[in-house]
């Protein structure tokens, strides 16, 4: 019997979806400031919860967070969770085994409440522990793109 994909093979969506999302000024500023090696957070003026990346309205108390509530974060933080990846998804639905396992860290930046999930380098998987102090690693030339954040490393 023929496999399903041999009968009708649809390789992709019939259009290239380059989604034109509005980012809002907070996210725009966040990405622009990466060029200056700065990480911005948004501190809710009502409850104090600090979002990173910044958001325009507090999800906890619904208060509007304005431009004046954007704060600079140090880029240093604490590892609150971790996993070692042995595979990755290739974007086409296939799992690929990684030649070198990679670490994904759940990181709380100093003075921020959100947890961000980032690649962690410069440490062996068996040495990773919760509470590890980590720091952002910038790529050599920062351009105001998310790719400016290369990874995090132990301090």
């Amino acid at each position: 019997m023929k496999s399903k994909s041999e009968i009708v093979e649809v390789k992709a969506l019939p259009f290239a979806a380059g989604f034109n999302w509005s980012t809002g000024f907070q996210m725009q500023r966040f990405i622009q400031e990466l060029a200056n090696r700065k990480i911005l957070g948004a501190k809710c003026p009502e409850c104090g919860y600090t979002y990173v990346p910044p958001r325009s309205r507090c999800g906890k108390c619904y208060t509007k967070i304005g431009e004046e509530n954007l704060i600079n974060l140090s880029g240093k933080g604490t590892l609150v969770g971790y996993t070692t990846a042995y595979v990755k998804l290739d974007g086409q639905g296939n799992f690929q085994d990684l030649e070198e396992p990679g670490i994904i860290g759940a990181i709380k930046l100093e003075n921020a409440d959100s947890t961000i999930f980032m690649p962690l380098e410069g440490i062996k998987p068996r040495d990773v522990t919760e509470g590890l102090k980590v720091e952002v690693q910038w790529r050599e030339e920062t351009k105001g793109e998310l790719a400016d954040i290369r990874c995090f490393k132990p301090t």
Partner: peptide
């Protein structure tokens, strides 16, 4: 889509 998908690890 504006952050975690761009970082790409999750």
């Amino acid at each position: 889509p504006l952050f975690d998908r761009q970082i790409g690890v999750l």
